[in-house]
């Protein structure tokens, strides 16, 4: 279903222009990795804090209010560089299930993060106290860390699996 669209996209002038410049994809991928670092690094800091691992001096709400905005900025860069890579090499992305699994997990983890950030903003004192913190905090921390790791795996494996499906 997506293959005809991918084939058409790869013949557009925009896609062809970027294909003709060999530096576009590696540069975009490098920026993509830097943005992944900002997003995943921030997610790890927040999730470790929720799990009570490490020596954070900051409260949960302080940490979240500082880092979640950086996660959204990083995600914006990820979407932009990801779009560049998709328009330049659409077939590579659309044929492998890794790409679709990655997109699905990004939607899930972004929704979770947004709900989490809203809950913390609305009731900071409850989230900051170790005993009053909702029991779903630890579940959120574990699930979101696993989702980000799976997203990184799928992202890297797009490049290793697409040729089997093309």
């Amino acid at each position: 279903m997506f293959r005809p669209f991918a084939d058409w996209l790869s013949t557009t002038a925009l896609s062809k222009t970027m294909q003709d410049h060999a530096w576009v994809v590696p540069t975009s991928q490098s920026i993509h990795i830097i943005a992944v670092s900002i997003v995943f690094g921030s997610a790890c800091m927040i999730n470790l804090r929720l799990l009570g691992v490490g020596r954070s001096g900051r409260s949960v709400s302080q940490l979240s209010n500082t880092l979640v905005p950086w996660m959204w900025r990083g995600l914006a860069v990820l979407l932009f560089t990801g779009l560049i890579q998709t328009v330049t090499e659409p077939v590579r992305q659309f044929v492998t299930p890794m790409f679709w699994a990655k997109m699905l997990m990004i939607i899930v983890v972004a929704t979770m993060t947004s709900l989490y950030a809203r809950a913390v903003r609305r009731n900071a004192p409850q989230w900051d106290g170790a005993s009053s913190r909702p029991s779903r905090a630890k579940a959120f921390a574990i699930v979101s860390t696993l989702l980000w790791l799976a997203i990184i795996v799928c992202g890297r494996f797009i490049g290793y699996t697409w040729s089997f499906y093309a």
Partner: peptide, 30 residues
């Protein structure tokens, strides 16, 4: 390679946090 990428995102992400703090751009509440 995937494990290398996972590890390097934590290296870069954590160093960037400190660097941005030194530049006065982020984490000024710490």
């Amino acid at each position: 390679e995937t494990l290398h990428v996972m590890a390097l995102t934590v290296v870069f992400g954590s160093i960037a946090m400190l660097d941005l703090r030194l530049l006065g751009i982020a984490s000024r509440n710490s």
